[in-house]
Design a binder for these strands. Structure first.
Lengths: 294, 294
DNA sequence: AGTCTGTATTTCATTTTTTGCAATTTTGGT
DNA sequence: ACCAAAATTGCAAAAAATGAAATACAGACT
């Protein structure tokens, strides 16, 4: 018996209809049937009298219903109590976040955090990925949301949150870049490249160029992934960027993903901070929460 | 959170030692570590302060301990209440059981049943497998423990309990049978066979003979598997019998299993009764209990 | 009677989770 | 410096959970 089974049982006990419960609780009918069968097996008792045409709670089922109600109530109480401890936490978190990350994952994390620690304040700084680790080291910020760097300082802890796929993108509009891409085979040495100065996107790009032995014609160097997408959209060249940047860009309809069958190593997005700061309750709360999935 | 995790947590909370708990609760250390990690993740809270050298229950851990204690208590109460209903059942069960089954699986089932329904009486009849279904049909017994027959009457329900492997056995002592078995290739048509009159063991034997196109020299026909083992031990021939019969035979050291690389279809041991009798509470209790594994 | 419909269950193939072994990490003791 | 004890992690095999589709079955409708 676990929480989920208990919830399903409780719903079924009041709906008395497998189809309805499975629909409303978002499980397939087969799953529901088997959850109930498991419970009955575990308790050694028939919980529902399935009368060919109707489903009724058995005598034992009523007793179990009583137990489960009590239990789930206590469970909720427990969760509240546990959150209460962190709910009272006050103070300030200085958070650094790459624009990439602020698009894709920050909102969900902040929502959860505000719910859990309503009294805490957050100061958000955004900027380029490479700055994240410098700022942490310099003590300018407490915690950063960024992609895993090629080398992580020993004093820092990093916790992975998600993998972001990386793609090569090109303009949609007719332009010189697209003319060159239409050739077969494509002469990559000719195609202008929109490149970032440094950081994980740059290293993905470099790995690809090295693997295919391409000496790129660098069209523009820009700071920040979003600017790269804009430049590509305008026809300045192709670029290597992580997927969420494309999805959230205002010009996403004016760029396209090129299928070049090269397995770009995905970004490892996560939270990062000085290990010793993990002792501070507020930062610890943020850390744990960022790592939690739901 | 489920029962098992709760038990592990509770034990760890008092032992404060992963190694001890994992040992005493019969799980590997890694399993225990990850059960606790799962709980912590589920609750979003650190349950134990792993202080480099020692393990201590955290503030939140104490609250959870309190919850879990209560819960497990209620769980036990629930189980008692549920069993109470059947504990008061009275009446008589007329049980038929093949000797095969009485060796291997009846004791465990009866133990459980006596515990759950102490006031019920059991009348046990043993006999040959083929009689089981006749006796049920005739109403002489209520329920039987037997191997699944080649054809099950439509009015009966059968519930599988276990699979029993089937082997070909030979004597250990020097005798004519062993002389014949020493030949290469073995002339199976020469080797005397101890055969049962009918029933599932007979059909396994027949299938094998047919598959290998053997016209056996039938040495003896006997009733009941145990007698077959005894005859084989005395050197009368070889025989096809289910494994538990061998294991429980007083002469098990005087027979050996022949590896003839033939996949005898295993016995499907189970409980059987007239479907309509499933409505009787006492019989229903027995039926359910027999099907339960633990 | 025959077909249709709503409901619960089972089968099957696939995905996800759990598990234990062995390796790793960390720290205290000798 | 080396060893021993304790917790964790990587990995691959085993077990369990899952949903889609098939099945079973009783009543409703034509």
């Amino acid at each position: 018996m676990d929480i989920r089974s208990a919830q399903l049982f409780l719903h079924l006990a009041s709906s008395l209809n497998f189809s309805k419960t499975s629909e409303q609780m978002f499980v397939s009918p087969s799953t529901l049937t088997r959850v109930i069968q498991r419970l009955e097996d575990e308790l050694g008792v028939l919980l529902f009298n399935r009368d060919k045409r109707s489903v009724l709670l058995s005598k034992e089922g009523i007793r179990v219903q009583q137990f489960v109600r009590l239990w789930l109530d206590e469970w909720h109480q427990l969760q509240q109590d546990l959150q209460l401890a962190s709910a009272e936490l006050t103070g300030e978190i200085r958070l650094f976040c790459t624009v990439t990350a602020s698009y894709s994952h920050l909102p969900a994390i902040l929502d959860k955090f505000r719910l859990q620690c309503p009294k805490a304040e957050i100061k958000l700084t955004t900027g380029d990925a490479a700055m994240a680790f410098e700022k942490i080291k310099a003590g300018e910020v407490d915690i950063a949301l960024a992609a895993y760097p090629s080398h992580l300082p020993a004093t820092m802890s990093f916790q992975r949150i998600a993998q972001l796929p990386v793609w090569l993108i090109a303009p949609v509009i007719p332009c010189k870049v697209n003319d060159l891409l239409a050739a077969a085979p494509i002469n990559w040495n000719e195609i202008p490249l929109v490149q970032s100065d440094h950081g994980p996107a740059r290293s993905r790009s470099d790995q690809w160029l090295a693997a295919r032995n391409i000496k790129p014609r660098v069209a523009v160097k820009v700071d920040g992934h979003e600017a790269m997408v804009s430049m590509v959209a305008l026809g300045s060249g192709v670029a290597v960027v992580p997927e969420p940047v494309i999805q959230h860009s205002p010009v996403r309809d004016r760029v396209r993903i090129l299928d070049i069958s090269y397995p770009f190593q995905p970004f490892e997005l996560g939270v990062c901070m000085l290990s010793k700061k993990l002792e501070q309750p507020l930062l610890q709360a943020f850390w744990q929460l960022a790592a939690t999935k739901k």
